[in-house]
Structures are given as C-alpha cells and as structure tokens.
Design a protein around this nucleic acid. Structure first.
Lengths: 282, 282
DNA sequence: ACTTGACTCTCCTGTTAGGGGAGGCTGTAT
DNA sequence: ATACAGCCTCCCCTAACAGGAGAGTCAAGT
C-alpha cells in the first residue's frame, strides 16, 4: 500500500489530481484509513491511473473516461466506436486550430504588406433571415447607384412600407458591363402585394465573412478587394453574392466620414485538408 | 444608439457576451441610462466588437485583446510582434492536437488489429532523477538474468545498501549476442565507496513512454514490442535506453500473475511538422 | 389608465480539471 | 519532546461565458 505522495510520484501526477479523481469517483484509493483519513493505493492501481491518463491524452473528458471504464469489460466494439467518434471530433479540432493559424498568418500578412493602408477586422458569422423589399436593376456606372437608391426609397415611402433596418445592396454581378444589383430595405413581413418593387429573401444560417467600411463610398472597392483577399488567404471560397448593409449612410448623417457600411460575403470552407496528399495544389 | 439586443444581433454575439465585455472593461457601451441601467451602444462600436471578435478568433485571450487595443495607436510593429508570438503558440497548439489525433488513431489501430491481445495503456511522462547502485554485465541468455539479479541483491545486502524503491533494469543492448544490461536499486544518495557495484544515474526531466507489464516475464518481450510500435505510430523516436522497474516482482510476491513491471523508453519528438509550415510562417 | 409581452437589469450558480493556500492532524526521526 | 515532512478537509480561483431568478423598463394595444 502506497501513500498518496508515493503513488503520485510513481504515476507522475499531482496529489491534487489524485484527490480530485477520488472526489469524482474516477479513481478511489484501495483503502482509506479510518482514523487518519489517509488514502492508500495499491500498486495495481497504477494500471488504472495509466489508463485514465492515456484516455485523457486522447482528449476524453474525465466524465467520458469514467463511462468508458464503466463499460470496459471485454466490450471492445463499444470502445472502438467511441474512439472513432473521438477521432472525428479530434479531426475537427485539428482543422479548426489549423484554420485559426491560417487566419493569424493572414492577419500578420495584411499588417506587414499593407502597413500604410487601413487595417480591417474580418469576422465570420452566421446570418439571420432577412426579408428585403426593393428593386433589382442593371446600371452601367457606380455613380448611377445613388439615384437608383433614391428611387427605391421613394417607392418604399410611396407604398407605405416601413423599413425595420438600414438599406441593403446585393451585388449579383460587378464587371466591365456595370452593376447588376438589388437595392432594398428589410421589412418585418412580406407585404401581400407589391407594385414595381420585388422581394429578396436572405436565408438564415449562412456563413458570411464580414468587414466594415468606414467613410465615403469612393474607396469601398478597396475594402471589397481586401475582403476577397482575406477569404482566399484564410482558406475559404465564395458561396454567394456580396451584400452591403448601410448602417450609417447619407440617410443618417451628412458627414461622409461617419458613413459605416458592412460588407458581407457568403463563404464555405474548402475542405480538402483531409486529402493530405493533395495539399496546397494552387 | 442601439439597445443591447439590437447591437448583439448586428454583431452576432450574445447579450451575455456584451455584458461580460462591459464588466471586464473590454467594450463599454457608449452610454448607460442612469435611471434604467440600460446599455446603449453606438453604431461605431461595431468596429470595436469586430476587432475583438477577429482577435478572439486568432486565439488571443480577452485580456490580451484588451492589451492589444490599449497599445493600438499606430504601433504596428508591436502588434506584428504579438501576432508572430501568437503564431508560434498556435503552431504548437496545432502540433499538439495533431499528435493527440495520432495517438487516438494508434489506439484504435491497436484495439482493432490486436483485439485478442492484451490492451496496453501507454503514457508519456517526465522522469525524476534517480540514483541506482548495481552492476552492469553482458549475459547471453534471458534465463541468466534471474541469477545475476540475485547476485546484485546479495552484494547490496552485503554492503549494507538499503534500496528506497523497486529494482530497475537498464537495457543497453539486446541482440543476438545477448543482453547488455545494468541491474540496480535506487538509493537515497550515492555511497562514498563502492566495491564491485557501480552507479548509474538517471537524469530528471527525460520524456519517456511508459507501459505496464502484468504477470510473468515470459511475455515481457511482447509488451516491449508493443511499446516500440506505439512510439513509432505516435510519431516519436527513441532517445535512450529502455528500462524496467519491478514494482512487484518475486521479491514481493510468490504469485507470478501479480508481478507488475513498468517499461520506460526515453523518447523525443520527430519535429518535422514545423518544416511544413516553415515557409509560410517565416 | 391598465395590461401584456418583449426587453433589460443585477445577482447567483455552474461549467473543466484541477491549483493555491489556510489551518490542523499524523508519522517518524532525532 | 520536538521538529519536520506529509497528509487531511475546506474554501476560493481560473476563462469566457450560459442559465436562470426576480425585478424593473418600454412601447403597443385595450
């Protein structure tokens, strides 16, 4: 019989840990002296603690380890199943940590190579459902957008539609031919009938990369380009149309420096990390 | 000015999170209504929360984020340094999680391919310093070891050396020529003079892979082989001589089934994973 | 004016796997 | 007898919130 300190030294764990395992009934000492309360372990319990440590090292929680040990008797199938599940979890953890590393590298890259440009903060989030009412059109020049927005606003007012949030633009295509975009406002529910205006629904639960653009719209293209860069560098790919949310626009303030626009681009993961042999094929 | 719920929806964080950030002074609302206590945020604070989220996503703690934001003004060098440090940390995290995954896979492998063999629990630990007194020799056959151990024990007794723990064998070489091994007992301090016996010191802080062998010594080779397999499969390499610690041996019990022997093999990491990302991080 | 329901507030507890320390008992060696 | 190492229990602490209790606030509808 070993006192807790000797047992701890053999197993290379702390005394606190052993007492903790005793408390949660994960590893109860073979004997506890009634008068002194001293915990006494048998050498055989080295087997137990080593199993616990091995499983802990595999990423199981102490509770899971207790469960595994409870159903341990010759039931290898169950345990193999548990291990397989854990392998899947662990693979997700590895992927997530690797993606995190990639984002860090992308961020440093951005700071070093564009140190005199504005610094952006890119964030990945899930969208909520949004019902937009507005109009889609094709415009040859960026400068045409402003007037179109005013037209849409006028229509909304005319049809007594009350927006519940800032205007949103959805860009379906931006190329040498101009802009194919939708301009609309979020509404509580879709009006039963619409004249001239159309409806555009944004689904809930989409994963988007988001960034804020400060100030006047002359430089918004740069922000969009930075977002595109970041998406690629962080190992994602486009999965939808970019939209802009005009949190603070000429409708709210006359000071262009105070304009605040959010750019959102739906994305999805490029999950080729599992193909270890086809790494970085770009 | 936005109420906490609106702001939370915009930033896609929970209200709890915002209140928490307020409490730790990471992101204080622009205004707090004196009578109601309602937190009111400005749209501009979207910038702040997005920076916080971006940094959190990079793996910084909230405290580190607060520090970064405190020294944020134009001091890109400092921030790049912090990012570089974090990249190193994160690389370690990725490596550790990948190693964990590898151990999981090795464990499942062991269970599926050797389902009727005994299941071992391999553990990695750091050794403590140990001073051994005993004898090194070369023996042609495994069966010779037993007698040699008894000789060493007799010498120890004769020289009035009191072991403070179980006997230890260190195997310097095991091949077709036989066994080159040291057999000794741990002592408190090195005796000033030794006759016949020699001293063997085991350093502290060595990383070893450890496994327990139950029962009689006929099958100890299999346990050793399983340990060797596991070391390789888990991505480590040998870094020293295997030793065996006879926690419960014929000296303690006459029942061979109760024998308990720990095998320890010093190991080191095969760190070629860093080379893979070396280009990207440099 | 009243009520309803949605929203917000503070305060408390719980999560993981133990670490740190206070204050007190035990066991052994000198 | 006394020192000193080792052990005990009990309580508080971690990071980043989540859940819930109980109470106050706000705008709309009756």
């Amino acid at each position: 019989m070993l006192k807790i300190g000797e047992f701890a030294r053999l197993a290379q764990v702390s005394i606190k840990t052993l007492r903790h395992y005793d408390k949660i009934d994960l590893l109860v000492p073979a004997h506890v002296d009634e008068s002194s309360g001293y915990r006494l372990y048998k050498i055989d319990q080295l087997t137990d603690i080593m199993q616990i440590l091995a499983l802990k090292d595999c990423g199981f929680t102490l509770e899971e380890i207790a469960d595994i040990r409870a159903t341990n008797t010759h039931d290898t199938d169950t345990i193999v199943t548990l291990l397989s599940e854990q392998i899947v979890n662990q693979q997700e953890v590895v992927d997530a940590e690797q993606a995190r590393l990639q984002r860090l590298v992308a961020r440093r890259q951005q700071m070093t190579t564009m140190s005199n440009a504005p610094q952006y903060d890119f964030v990945i989030k899930q969208t909520e459902a949004l019902t937009l009412v507005g109009q889609r059109t094709h415009l040859p020049e960026q400068s045409d957008i402003d007037k179109f927005v005013r037209d849409v606003l006028a229509q909304l007012t005319h049809q007594l539609i009350v927006p519940i949030g800032p205007m949103v633009h959805v860009y379906f295509a931006v190329d040498e031919n101009g802009y194919d975009l939708f301009v609309g406002a979020p509404v509580m529910a879709l009006p039963s009938e619409l004249d001239v205006l159309t409806c555009q629904r944004l689904q809930a639960g989409q994963t988007v990369a988001s960034v804020l653009h400060h100030g006047d719209y002359a430089t918004i293209q740069q922000t969009g380009a930075a977002l595109a860069d970041w998406i690629v560098q962080s190992g994602y790919q486009y999965a939808g149309h970019v939209r802009e949310i005009y949190h603070r626009s000429p409708a709210h303030t006359s000071n262009p420096e105070a304009y605040l626009t959010e750019l959102q681009c739906p994305i999805s993961q490029i999950s080729n990390k599992h193909d270890k042999h086809h790494k970085e094929t770009k």
